[in-house]
Structures are given as structure tokens and as C-alpha cells.
Design a protein around this nucleic acid. Structure first.
Lengths: 216, 216
DNA sequence: CTGCGTGCTGTGAACGCGCTGAGGACGCCG
DNA sequence: CGGCGTCCTCAGCGCGTTCACAGCACGCAG
């Protein structure tokens, strides 16, 4: 279990309590430290405070999800207004608890979370000011809607699930185009071109001889 | 009555018992199957286990409510902790029973639930100036009544429960048409055409290669 | 500088998706 | 039995999408 909480007393209490339940518990006191620990992996779930020094809980989850980490996250917040529950869940948290909370409730929710297993992928992908919503089949760039054809959408979808990574044309052909169908590799170049025109020139980088990369 | 319970023996017992009381009973054994059945509508109430394969009872109710389904839900759980009660009810369940329970109590609560009727349901679905009343089987557009056939109504009903989302023809065929029956996908196109003529051209958007979306 | 390889893009053609009108099958009612 | 409404299939058409091709731009090596 990973606990990310800056308030020392609460963190210690959580650690003791969870250890008593048989969990192995690590504590991180700042946003960046928490993110690093979560990235490192090996945890079954994370308990995460919203108000953190260095990096908010929201931002932390968003980054984690962007990097394809699907660790179950239980969020804690003192707020019940300004930031609401919806915000937390939208960011990719799996459950949400407002302070003050009963310890029993926390445990129960944690167990539920572990039972449920890894969360499904979030409903919207976000990279920079780019947003892609698979359910609504909508793409926005800086809140302006961008009309994409089916193929363009599928390609961008694939790229946005691994932002910053270089993805080869072959891989794109295999996954975005029907594997069986023999299509010229040039098709990828063509569609990258289309996307560049619609999304902005420098968003998709060419890595000569290797593939393409979505700028983060 | 819809019973969602994965433990086969209990499910069978409930079915028999309820049928003896004069209810028509369908059983679903997994979370997703239960959700689909509940979505499809036509039930007076649902008996729902919390621990389900695929999708927890909590999540199931949450999604159901999010989609504007106000079916009365009686939740069953092996837990009796503080968490489960509160959380089950928070999720939108209407009553809560912990296992093991007496069959008489179950029946009594069920009756109470049915008497009480659907929970503060907004009796109509509203999207823009479109209104659909499932109970009265009526549809109005800008307060003018629109006459729809049964199939048109079912299709619009399904679309209005997920406004803004793209819904594929396959999904529509599965849910609006009888799953068993093999119907040509073209039927969907035809009925979308009918609806467009009656509701206005730009209310139903076509997303080429993906499906249809009800404009919000 | 020339030559080569890789990637970009404008053109245009074929394809196939989705829309529509026509009409047949079926059930309901008088 | 005939009229009517609904459901659904079918075939044709329009048009957006997809993709191949060829010529061009650019980086790199000799």
C-alpha cells in the first residue's frame, strides 16, 4: 500500500492502522515523491491526499494515468465544495473520501477497491491541450472541437495512449489498420500529415528511421 | 423482477420463491449482464448482490442512476460493516439487506419498495427540448407531441439515456432490437432516418464508421 | 557539389458507408 | 376478407473517406 499524505500525524496513523491489517505500507509526504513511488510500481493500491506540496493529488493521478499506470487510487480530500468529487474521479481516481472520514469506512472502501482490481482506463485521454473522448468520439484542441475521420481518430487514439514514446510505422499499421489488409506504409505518413494539419504542425514529431512520437 | 446474483443456488431459490408470489423473474449472473438487463428496462424492481463478477453492485447502481434509470433497487450483501450500508445507499440503492436474511423480510421489503414506487424519478428523460416519458410512452419536442411507433420509441429511448455518446449500430441492434433475431444493420439506418424526419434533421448525428450520437 | 534514402504532400480514383424510396410480409381491426 | 399501420429488406445513389502514386523537400554521405 502506498500512502501519500503530507500531514505527518494522519500519515502515521494510517500507516499503523493499515499495518495492523496486514498491509505493507510506504509513506510519501510530497506530490513528486508520491509520483515517483507510484511509478516504481509494486503497490496494490494508493491512498492519496489531494492537497500536497509540490504536486496536487489530481495532477499526480493524471500523470500516472497518462503513463499507463493503472494502480487503484483512493483519494482523500478535506474539501467538499470547491473541488468536488467529480473532479477527483474525472482525473482517474477510483474512489473518493472526504475528511473527516471513519477509519472503518476507509478500510472497507480500500478492500472494495482491491477486490475490484485495476481500474478500467479513464474515459478521456489528455495530452497537453489535446483531449480525446472515446465514448463521445470527440477530440478537442485547446477546447476547440476538431473533426476527425474514423481513421484519423483511431490513429490519434493509439498515439495518445503512449504519449512521448516513439511508435514505428509497422506497429501503427498493425494496430490502427487491419492487420490482415496489406496497406502501403506510406498510408501512415499520409495520415500523420492529415493529423498535423488539423492539430498543429509540431504536435507529432517524426523520428527519422524509427517512427512517430506525440509531443507531451 | 430482475435478480442479479452470481451464487447459483441463491439465485434459483429467489427465482422460485418470487415466482410463487406471482412475479415474473429474470436472473443475471454477472455485473455487466445485470446492468444490460436493467438498462433494457421493463422491470418493476431489481434485487442486486454486491459481490458480482465483472462489476460490483455498487458500481452497477451508480452507472444505472447516472444513465437516468430509476428502477427500485434492493441490495444484498454479506457485509454488515458501517461502510456497506452507507455506501450502498449512497450509490443509489433504495434498500439494503445483509446476508443471511429471512425470506419473509426480503418479501416485505420488496413489497414496501414497490409500494413506494420508483425513487424520486424524474418521470421524463430530457435532452434539449426533447422530452420522453417512458411510463406514458410519449415524446414531445418543444412541447409539441410527436407520434412514434414502438420501434422508433425504443430507439429514441435508448439514445436519450446516453446523450452525447456515440452508440454503435451493433449495440443498438443488440438492445433496441431483439438480440436473438438477426436483423440487418441497415434497419438501424432506416429508423434513424424515420426519427430524423420526426424530430428534426440535425438532432441525430452520424459518426461515420462508429455509430450515432444524440446531440445534447 | 552530386547522389541516395527517407519522409511529405497534392492529385485523383475507387471504394464503401450511410441515406432514401419502394415494396413485401405480417398482424390487427372492422 | 380488405384496409391499415408497422416492421424490415432491398437496391440505387451520393459523397466522404481512404489510399496509391508520383514528384518534391530535406538530411546525410561521399
Amino acid at each position: 500500500m502506498l500512502v501519500v499524505e503530507d500531514e505527518a500525524r494522519l500519515a502515521a496513523a494510517l500507516q499503523r492502522g493499515l499495518q495492523a491489517e496486514g498491509f505493507a505500507v510506504d509513506v510519501a509526504a510530497t506530490g513528486p515523491a508520491g509520483l515517483d513511488a507510484a511509478r516504481h510500481g509494486g503497490y496494490d493500491a494508493m491512498i492519496l491526499d489531494v492537497m500536497l506540496p509540490g504536486l496536487s493529488g489530481y495532477e499526480l493521478v493524471r500523470r500516472l494515468r497518462a503513463e499507463q499506470h493503472w494502480l487503484p487510487v483512493l483519494m482523500l480530500s478535506a474539501k467538499d465544495g470547491e473541488y468536488d468529487q467529480a473532479d477527483g474521479l474525472d482525473c482517474g481516481a477510483d474512489d473518493y473520501l472526504t475528511k473527516p472520514f471513519s477509519y472503518v469506512v476507509l478500510l472497507a472502501r480500500l478492500r472494495a477497491l482491491l477486490r475490484r482490481g485495476a481500474p478500467e482506463r479513464p474515459t478521456v485521454l489528455t495530452v497537453g491541450d489535446l483531449r480525446l473522448d472515446p465514448a463521445r468520439r470527440r477530440v478537442t484542441r485547446a477546447d476547440a472541437e476538431v473533426a476527425l475521420t474514423a481513421r484519423e481518430f483511431a490513429l490519434l487514439d493509439y498515439l495518445m495512449r503512449r504519449p512521448g514514446q516513439v511508435i514505428s510505422k509497422i506497429e501503427l499499421l498493425d494496430h490502427v489498420w487491419d492487420a490482415s489488409l496489406e496497406t502501403a506504409p506510406n498510408a501512415v505518413e499520409v495520415y500523420v500529415g492529415y493529423l498535423r494539419r488539423k492539430l498543429g504542425r509540431d504536435r507529432l514529431e517524426t523520428v527519422r528511421g524509427a517512427g512517430y512520437r506525440l509531443a507531451t
